[in-house]
Design a protein around this nucleic acid. Structure first.
Lengths: 198, 198
DNA sequence: TTTAGAAATTGACCGTGGTCGATTTTACGG
DNA sequence: CCGTAAAATCGACCACGGTCAATTTCTAAA
């Protein structure tokens, strides 16, 4: 364990994050250049990589922060009472993930902790999603949801379908359906034992 | 419509593919460098990009070819008679997708046709997977599989779970379970109406 | 206050993917 | 066989992410 980080380091890191945030606001995540970030933050290029192992990790940091905010918002409300309400509640989170192709790519890459690296905010977000969903689903299993499968597996499945739906969203073979509408049929089929009856 | 490609162009393209194949055999997909490919093929760098829009598309070409071979093999056999057999049959295809992190990344990126670009061999492979699976599942629906959801949606779901399972495979948070074992619980839950009874 | 050493920063440099105007090769009508 | 326009190839060049030895700044013990 090294020493605690100096105040200067904290400030530099924040300046880098702020500069990056500004650039994203102007040019999107895909338009972010490391040279531009360090220029705006007023530091040398090497400093950037003393704070972030690579460019993608900075993006993951920014995206993870947005996802955490959205998830906190979602978790703050009451648990949903059926599958449709559940889909409604998750929509804002998925909107972030699908906001840009570059964002989705980063989310997918870091949704599971990469083997070598420290977990990112995105990884933690997915773990938190898992817990929230598992709780919601376990509660709904007392109210008509399928009970033949553990709540945790169902929760993981929800994430699988969300990824699939967003991936299809970036695909031209399929009509430009809103992702929310695309996720819903999956969730109905996955979470209920008999769609015709629900 | 321009003219048909000249013989020379066909040969050059093949030399590039062969060189790339050799390098992959030696160093894996992650170890492929464009400079190395053109050096072995005996052409200039610009020629490479006259044949492939970018490096990733070459990789997609190589990976797609392997996937097509595996899928043809799978399709050649008789249709499976239950969920377990279905999972068995798909295993070789998933083994390719999970063989390397770099491979999985490419597969995910091109599994749906990217908005701007020509569809790759990988895209076509996923469409073919979809059709094969839809046929298999429709047949199995006459033998006990859930009938409350259209076969095509179930087929898409299988792909969603495969992606999820392979992604988790590259994640250290979870134990190093073989991907096949990871996919199976999903498929049982997704394809049957009541896991406890099956 | 001094000072040793750790922490933080610097910027020249490199590897690699990708571009583009110049050049050579091919196909084909006359 | 020649002339010419399209096709194919070439390679110097650029953009951008990432490295690292050198330098500056900070901290804390003496």
């Amino acid at each position: 364990m090294g020493r605690a980080p100096q105040k200067r380091r904290i400030e530099t890191r924040q300046r880098l994050l702020d500069a990056a945030g500004d650039i994203v606001a102007e040019a999107g995540f895909a338009g972010l250049r490391v040279d531009e970030v360090v220029a705006r933050a007023g530091v040398a290029k090497g400093t950037f990589f003393a704070h972030f192992p690579d460019k993608d990790r900075l993006l993951a940091e920014l995206i993870g922060a947005r996802m955490q905010a959205a998830l906190a918002d979602i978790a703050a409300g009451p648990p949903p009472d059926d599958v449709e309400a559940l889909a409604d509640r998750l929509a804002p989170l998925y909107a972030i993930m699908a906001s840009e192709r570059a964002v989705f790519d980063i989310v997918v890459r870091y949704s599971g902790a990469a083997l070598e690296t420290e977990p990112t905010e995105i990884t933690r977000n997915f773990v938190a999603q898992d817990e929230l969903l598992t709780g919601w689903i376990a509660r709904l299993q007392a109210r008509g949801l399928r009970r033949d499968v553990p709540a945790r597996l169902l929760a993981e499945g929800v994430q699988a379908f969300a990824t699939q739906a967003i991936a299809l969203h970036f695909c031209v073979l399929h009509d430009p359906v809103p992702i929310d509408d695309r996720i819903r049929p999956y969730l109905r089929a996955w979470l209920t034992r008999d769609v015709a009856l629900s």
